[in-house]
């Protein structure tokens, strides 16, 4: 069953389409890998999937009550915010009414558990802005895990990771997928993805199955 889909959609900015006639569907446990050159429209595609960019035309369907999470490039987040690692991770819990409710013991356990899953359990009180690019990316993954997403959308998540961090990161992604989370990942890397993942190429104003 489709959780999130685009139907004959033109994607772009201010009425100008960057990608045309895009049809794409995500179901539970899917692993979609998106390739494409810089400027081809990967981020436009991801933002349209997330819903933060209105479609130029076409239709976006989202299943009722879908828990969606996105993982931006860490460099795109502003370093001036005095947020600790814990502050950033707890944002993953702020869905629906939780935005206005007090933090519970269960919330604190979730934050600690997910920081441990990405290997940053001792970094909770550190400033997010002072972490390396790879560490920030892992913090954002912990935040996404807190949201317990059914669909997780990731924008070039492994760019700043060294080999050891990459392995750990991949393990965390597999854990998520084993739990039924569908992953949509934009990346420049062609290797190291599971054999059953589906690869797509974004370019020439559209998206094609590889």
């Amino acid at each position: 069953m489709s959780l999130l889909s685009l139907h004959a959609a033109d994607l772009g900015y201010r009425g100008r389409a960057v990608l045309r006639q895009v049809s794409f569907s995500v179901s539970a446990g899917d692993w979609h890998i998106l390739h494409g050159a810089n400027g081809a429209g990967k981020s436009t595609f991801l933002r349209s999937m997330v819903g933060s960019l209105p479609l130029v035309c076409g239709r976006r369907d989202i299943s009722d009550g879908l828990r969606l999470a996105s993982l931006p490039q860490a460099a795109s987040l502003d370093a001036v915010f005095p947020l600790t690692v814990t502050d950033v991770v707890k944002m993953g819990l702020w869905h629906g009414k939780k935005l206005f409710q007090r933090e519970t013991d269960d919330d604190r356990v979730q934050i600690a558990t997910n920081l441990k899953r990405v290997g940053l359990e001792t970094y909770g009180t550190r400033l997010f802005a002072e972490l390396s690019g790879g560490q920030k990316q892992r913090v954002l993954l912990a935040r996404a895990m807190c949201a317990k997403p059914q669909v997780l959308i990731l924008d070039e998540p492994t760019t700043a990771l060294d080999m050891a961090s990459r392995r750990r990161y991949d393990e965390s992604l597999r854990e998520l997928r084993d739990g039924g989370t569908a992953l949509v990942i934009a990346t420049h890397e062609h290797e190291g993805w599971p054999s059953d993942s589906r690869h797509w190429v974004i370019g020439d104003g559209g998206i094609t199955h590889e």
Partner: peptide, 10 residues
């Protein structure tokens, strides 16, 4: 901090 995250959280 992260408007996209706000959108995904509804």
């Amino acid at each position: 901090f992260d408007p996209e995250q706000a959108v995904t959280l509804g």
